[in-house]
Design a protein around this nucleic acid. Structure first.
Lengths: 203, 203
DNA sequence: GTCTATACGCCGATAGAC
DNA sequence: GTCTATCGGCGTATAGAC
């Protein structure tokens, strides 16, 4: 299985270029501003009709994209949990991944952060209910139990922690912050972690 | 000038109900899933054609909506700056306003937080370049100068502070957090402020 | 200034030849 | 399995009667 620049690993073998083309267009122009002709043109060597040999309709493309991205994320999260014991280490791994994705696969990150998937994929689960993000919540919960993280509502802890992380990455993606994500990584991690960590003398 | 439930004050007198109907539909279903017929139906007593007596096209409705909301916000921000001296007080006022809007005018807040306006209003300025938000950035900058806020990039401070605030409000709006915004307000303010405040012993 | 009817275009989707 | 041609529908927008 090949590795694309955008680090999008697909289960099957077929329509990698199509999904990548769709991903970029959706991220740039939005789902509704992207026509199937656009996608066909962007995925070169392909004509409109041949799209329909791989996907029954437009939604299916977006759906498949969504699932692929979240599958990959889920695998990475599993990996991070296996490799690390403490909640702080696991969260650090997630943050690492998010910052790396922002620099190396900005379209994927944009899709995750700013796309309102429920507007065109009403049947798909919202982000927080997908396996990947459920596990991230679980990491936070176990951190609370173990005493690493302050004893607050785990969802609130999530919103504080990833509020900081995601807002920062978002400003990198839009160009409002002008450096690479990696330039802000260590500082941002520290702040976000201290917001929810118990040891912090802040609160 | 009347005050609507949704606290949307319009400059002129005419098409308040239209804009309110559009606001709700855009927030619920998104701009592209909302047809002009939908808007006409929602703004009762109005037929499709009469929409065109007030607005030349669909974009103009969204554009007017965007401007109205940001005008109101700008006025409120001016007010807050006039009434308070210190950056901490001014930011506190902004946070107050955002939490209040989330509970009292959720559609407005949703429009501000989650709508990708640039997808259907490519000519409008992005949020951070509007007067209201420029002033918020200025508040942060003056807080840095006065020593209230730590000496970091003001945009980074913005993303940390409002990352926390907005992520929390967003989870209230989606129902992921199940209480009123006001239930989380004091706690969230404290955390967000401590993240950027200099006096905090955190960092 | 409200309603009826209708034009027009775009895009999603198909059929069928080769 | 790629290309040509075309359908059908929806949604924006207009014209014209009253």
């Amino acid at each position: 299985m090949e590795q694309e620049k955008e680090t999008l690993r697909i289960k099957s073998d077929i329509p990698n270029e199509i999904l990548l083309a769709a991903l970029k267009l959706f991220a740039k122009k939005g789902y509704f501003n992207t026509s199937l002709t656009d996608i066909a043109n962007a995925a070169e060597l392909t004509t409109l009709t041949s799209l329909y040999q791989h996907f029954p309709n437009k939604q299916a493309i977006a759906s498949r994209l969504y699932e692929s991205i979240l599958d990959n994320l889920n695998i990475s999260v599993d990996d991070i949990r296996r490799r690390n014991q403490k909640a702080s280490e696991q969260l650090h791994g997630i943050v690492d991944l998010f910052f790396k994705l922002t620099d190396d696969a900005p379209y994927i990150m944009q899709f995750l952060l700013t796309t309102n998937t429920n507007e065109f994929l009403p049947t798909q689960k919202p982000l927080l209910e997908t396996p990947a993000f459920s596990k991230i919540i679980k990491i936070i919960q176990s951190g609370i139990k173990s005493g690493e993280i302050r004893n607050i509502d785990s969802l609130l802890a999530y919103s504080y922690f990833f509020g900081i992380i995601n807002a920062t990455l978002n400003m990198v993606l839009t160009g409002t912050l002008d450096k690479n994500a990696s330039a802000y990584q260590s500082q941002t991690w520290l702040i976000a972690w201290n917001v929810i960590a118990k040891k912090s003398s802040c609160f």
